[in-house]
C-alpha cells in the first residue's frame, strides 16, 4: 500500500523548514486549507493529506471495518509520519482531526513536536451526568445523517461513476457543482458517526507534547466551554480564542489562523 497516494499526501513549502501537517475534518478535504497554506509555506514544510474516503484519497483503500473508528484514521496519520520521515511535526488538526492528533500523539509522542487543536471537540454529545456539554444529543446526530442522505440522493446515480472512475482526472469532479468536498454517501455516513459519536475525553490527559488549543469566538459546533475543557485536560496546553467565527477559521479568517499556527510552530524549533 502506497501511503502517499492512499492519502493523497502533498508536501510543499520551505525544504528543511519545520514541518506543519494539516489535517482536515469531517465534511471536506485538504482544499479546506488552501487559504492558509501560502502563508505557512514561506517558513514551513507543509504536509497536506486527505483522510481515506475524502477528497482524492484512494477510495479502494476504504473499508468500513478500518474506518468506522478513530483508530483507522490515527493509524493513517502515524503511517504518513513514518513514510515521510521528516522528523517531529507540528500536527494541526481541525475539528475531528484534532482528536485524531490527540490519539496519535498519545501513542507516538516522538513523532510530534506539538499539536494545534483547531476548533476541537473530544465529544459532541452532552453528558449531563458528568456535567459535560458537548452541544448535541444523539438524536441531533441522526438528524445530521438524514441531512446527508437528503443531499446525496443523486450521488450513486450520477456522481460516483464520474469521480470514482477517474481518480486521475480531478477536473471532472470539479466541474460538478458543490463537488469540492463530494464524498460517497456511505463513506460520509460512517465518518459522520466516527466524528460525532466518539467520546475521547479521557484521552486528552495522555497528551505530553506542547499543545495549542485554538477555538473560534462563535462556533455552532464546538462551543467555548468545550475548548476550555480540552485546555483544562491537557497539561501545559495554551488556549487562544480566535476572532474568527464559525467552525472553519481556516476559511473565515485564514490570516489569523495561519498566524496562530506559525507563531506556535515557530517557537517549537
Amino acid at each position: 500500500m502506497d501511503v502517499r497516494s492512499r492519502n493523497h499526501v502533498r508536501v510543499s513549502g520551505r525544504p528543511g523548514g519545520p514541518v506543519v501537517m494539516l489535517a482536515h475534518g469531517f465534511g471536506c478535504d485538504q482544499n479546506l486549507w488552501r487559504l492558509v497554506v501560502p502563508a505557512l509555506e514561506r517558513e514551513f514544510t507543509v504536509v497536506l493529506f486527505d483522510h481515506v474516503g475524502a477528497g482524492r484519497s484512494d477510495l479502494s483503500a476504504w473499508s468500513e471495518d478500518r474506518y468506522s473508528s478513530m483508530d483507522g484514521y490515527v493509524d493513517d496519520v502515524l503511517e504518513i509520519c513514518r513514510e515521510l520521515d521528516l522528523g517531529p511535526v507540528t500536527f494541526v488538526g481541525h475539528s475531528v482531526s484534532a482528536t485524531m492528533g490527540v490519539l496519535a500523539a498519545a501513542r507516538h509522542p516522538e513523532y510530534f513536536a506539538g499539536l494545534v487543536l483547531l476548533a476541537p471537540s473530544p465529544c459532541f454529545i452532552d453528558d449531563p451526568a458528568a456535567g459535560y456539554r458537548g452541544g448535541f444529543s444523539a438524536e441531533d446526530i441522526e438528524e445530521l445523517l438524514q441531512s446527508l442522505d437528503a443531499n446525496y440522493l443523486g450521488w450513486s446515480g450520477a456522481m460516483a461513476p464520474v469521480i470514482m472512475g477517474n481518480p486521475d482526472r480531478p477536473e471532472l469532479g470539479q466541474e460538478l457543482t458543490n463537488s469540492f468536498c463530494a464524498t460517497d454517501p456511505d463513506i460520509a455516513r460512517v465518518f459522520a458517526r466516527v466524528t460525532f459519536l466518539s467520546d475521547n475525553r479521557t484521552d486528552l490527559e495522555q497528551v505530553t507534547v506542547p499543545t495549542l488549543v485554538a477555538q473560534c469566538s462563535s462556533d455552532a459546533i464546538a462551543p467555548p466551554e468545550v475548548g476550555a475543557f480540552v485546555h483544562a485536560r491537557i497539561r501545559g496546553s495554551r488556549l487562544i480564542t480566535l476572532n474568527a467565527t464559525g467552525h472553519c477559521p481556516q476559511l473565515s479568517a485564514p490570516e489569523e489562523t495561519a498566524q496562530a499556527i506559525a507563531a506556535f510552530a515557530g517557537r517549537l524549533r
Partner: peptide
C-alpha cells in the same frame, strides 16, 4: 440542529470556497 451541523461542515465551507 442536524441541519446546523450540515451547514457548518458542508454548506458554509463550500460557499466560502
Amino acid at each position: 440542529v442536524g441541519g446546523r451541523l450540515y451547514h457548518e461542515t458542508h454548506f458554509a465551507p463550500l460557499l466560502r470556497m
